[in-house]
Amino acid sequence: MGLMEKIAKKLILLLPAIGGLLSLEGSCATSCPYGLVNDPYPGQCPRYTDLNGDGFCDFSQTSVSMTTDTEIDETHQGDATDHTIENVDVDGVDYHIIPVTMIIIGLYLLTHYLFKKGYIRRSKHRRLWNLFLTFGYAGTGFTGFLLIFFIKLGIKTALNPSVTYWHAEMSILMVVATLLHIHIYWKPFRSIFSF
């Protein structure tokens, strides 16, 4: 039995375990996608929703605590409307992971082809991808620091969802460009494990 066959068999055996570990949103449509419990204001993602006004994201609250909150609200506000987080559109944000990844890889293949065919110099190809990588790191780092300060200082502005969105988009560029950077500098990369 070849090595690939052995790996394929092990992967097949692991599939049910992976499936059990990852549960589809359909079974827990109103829970926090990060698994957070009682996530305080302003929340850690753009989906922060606080319909009952208790200062915690409704998605991060258990049904028990939500019921308790609702009961308290009802005793204080007889005419309170029935707010449910099921009514909130939680899928409003699309991060375009696969299209953005495909565009970056496609662009890399193009410049790699041009360099291999001699249309551009190797240094130009490297420089271009080092610039993309720097841009990705700068964008991800800057927006990441903005987000962490928003969370730590409890700042909630209209900009928060945009910052999160651009943090995610720039991180796609950062991750893919880093993998391409490793490909470009494959020999020096291998040497880091042999010092």
């Binding site: 549960s23 829970s31 996608p33 990060y34 991060y95 950062m174 991750v175």
Partner: peptide, 21 residues
Amino acid sequence: GIGGFILLFMLEYGLKAPFNQ
């Protein structure tokens, strides 16, 4: 980077795992 990419992927495709937090 890879951890964030996994989180983003799971968020985008509605997957949830006990290790997310």
